[in-house]
Write a protein that binds this DNA or RNA. Structure first.
Lengths: 335, 335
DNA sequence: GTGAAAGCGCTAACAT
DNA sequence: ATGTTAGCGCTTTCAC
């Protein structure tokens, strides 16, 4: 359906080069006659023309396509990040291919392989482990920008949130609010993001002279709803009462924890002080005092795409961007 | 970096055809000698081989890529839908290119153009209007599957939720709960989805003998948070009290409406009966009686991909799939 | 059982 | 100012 340069050239009885020149706006530069230009432009106006990306890719060995590999789109944070990245990539002339790993290592590696096989010009990845990260590095010769998790061990380009400081601000605010103990429900403690959040938490409490705040930390293996449920169930079994205050290491954990409270008490006790990482408008549905730490997806996207373009254009310094977080407080509903 | 078939052939001093035959598992069929097969397999095992998609695309005029155009990824419903579609497409051997329109008509058309130019094998689109829909149809000769909105006027393949019945179930449940009037906060009443939801609503109330339930409908132009805020502000200005019960036409509208209630009263009055379209775990954060109507993204994805594959494989009947919705009730927190 | 060659549409380098 | 050509890596067709 799409006309080729050759079609146009033969139809107009001009050479392919000439057509290409005006199509690529080099007409001026190569001083193509006005008349010829007009003929070509008229033809295109009538019959249309679009480059054949496949042919172009084959010749130039680049696809004008970037890959993004994240755990899951149904997680609002990653969805928003994907959205922001997609906008900026498109602005830069790249299409984004988004794929999800569902936190499955095999899947993650397979996805990197698939996108590399499709010859993407670069890859954004949220790695699940150092091992995976190394696989990706080995697998592609194209630029790689890691997101969200700093497993260290390489000098690959990287964009993460300042989880430590974010957690410190959160913990300080909640400590000042005065309800103790302030528990921490941590999913997937192996993950750098969570580790940093825990470090921020403990650093504040220790500075406040809380001797053994480790006892206030509840750990589980993953960052899912079920894990939050499990933690809160365990808590209730042990203490037989709701915690006066707690921090959830992520929204899914919070959802799980609160759903258990709701079904245990019949409602979510409004006097619990709640803290969580990641922000969501629906947190306003709670009657509680609630603090959330927002990640700035827009800044992430900007930094990540900048880093990517830099690498694509032959730059070799890797970027390590640490994006500030924002603490948001919703005051407990007054009665 | 990637080896080509020719590289292998010359390295092994065999013809290209032979190499291709074993690479494509036609060795048996063409009775390539075991020895030759082994030589080739060994070589590949050592040096690797991946087809060059660009070359393949150029020759075969297909990209093994599908496009998905949705309003926005930061909307959980679309994000989840995208996720489910991506899984199924990948299973079928296709990569998905996801792009967002931000409800901008120009952007929507431009995206379709961009993906068509990239020669995607097919396109899933959530159209913003009949006009846009027609543009897309005209623009591509490849299969098109419309999602979410039935503007009618064409016999293109289509997957939508059974909004009418979903709304009927919701309205009946809330009517039976007994708190009246039951208002309906409707964003973007031009959109078929919302229209159907309103029709379901009015049909139930009229059947119940509510003479003029039109007065219970509050309308606004869009489906965003701000629109929900506006509606609830208007409501409060007029009635100077919270509604005893209301239905929001979508989650963003609900978020907006509730945030206004929260800032007006200092809390969200727990005795309001709330209904909403689309389901979200965080609805459980509310203390209210709340009904939500879930759309089955998984079923959508299955139907949409099936329809797409059918068309890609030369089928010509268009599918019109209407996916049932599920009513979910969360009982008001007991005290 | 294996080989040779054309051609998909583009770009870049080299003619004139 | 305009024209010619080689070649990117694959698939398909035909030939031995």
């Amino acid at each position: 359906m799409a006309k080729t340069v050759e079609t146009i050239a033969t139809a107009l009885n001009i050479s392919i080069t000439t057509v290409r020149l005006v199509l690529n706006n080099k007409a001026r530069q190569y001083r193509i006659s006005e008349k010829t230009q007009k003929r070509i432009n008229d033809y295109v106006a009538e019959h249309g023309y679009t480059v054949n990306h496949a042919a172009r890719s084959l010749k130039l060995n680049k696809t004008d396509t970037l890959g993004l590999i994240i755990p899951r789109l149904s997680n609002v944070f990653f969805a928003t990040l994907a959205e922001k990245l997609e906008i900026r990539c498109r602005e830069a002339g790249y299409q984004l291919m988004i794929s999800c790993t569902y936190s499955d290592l095999k899947q993650e590696n397979a996805l990197v392989d698939a996108l590399v096989d499709r010859n993407v010009d670069g890859l954004f990845v949220v790695p699940s482990s150092l091992q995976a990260q190394n696989h990706h590095l080995k697998r592609t010769s194209r630029p790689l920008v890691l997101l969200d998790r700093d497993f260290d061990g390489t000098d690959t380009s990287l964009v993460v949130s300042d989880n430590r400081r974010g957690s410190i601000a959160l913990t300080q605010a909640m400590f000042s609010a005065g309800q103790l103990p302030l528990f921490f429900m941590a999913g997937d403690t192996e993950q750098p993001t969570i580790k940093e959040r825990m470090k921020g938490y403990t650093s504040v409490l220790e500075a406040q002279g809380i001797a053994d705040c480790q006892q206030w930390i509840l750990e589980t293996a993953h960052n899912r709803r079920e894990d939050g449920e499990k933690l809160m169930q365990q808590f209730l079994a042990r203490h037989n009462a709701a915690p006066p205050a707690f921090i959830a290491s992520s929204l899914p954990v919070l959802e799980g924890a609160l759903s258990v409270l709701r079904s245990h008490f019949g409602f979510i006790p409004a006097d619990i002080n709640i803290g969580t990482f990641d922000e969501h408008p629906m947190l306003g549905f709670l009657s509680n005092n609630i603090w959330s730490v927002r990640q700035n997806e827009d800044a992430w996207a900007e930094q990540a795409v900048d880093a990517m373009l830099h690498l694509i254009n032959g730059g070799d310094e890797n970027v390590r961007a640490i994006v500030p977080m924002t603490l948001i407080h919703r005051a407990r509903a007054s009665l």
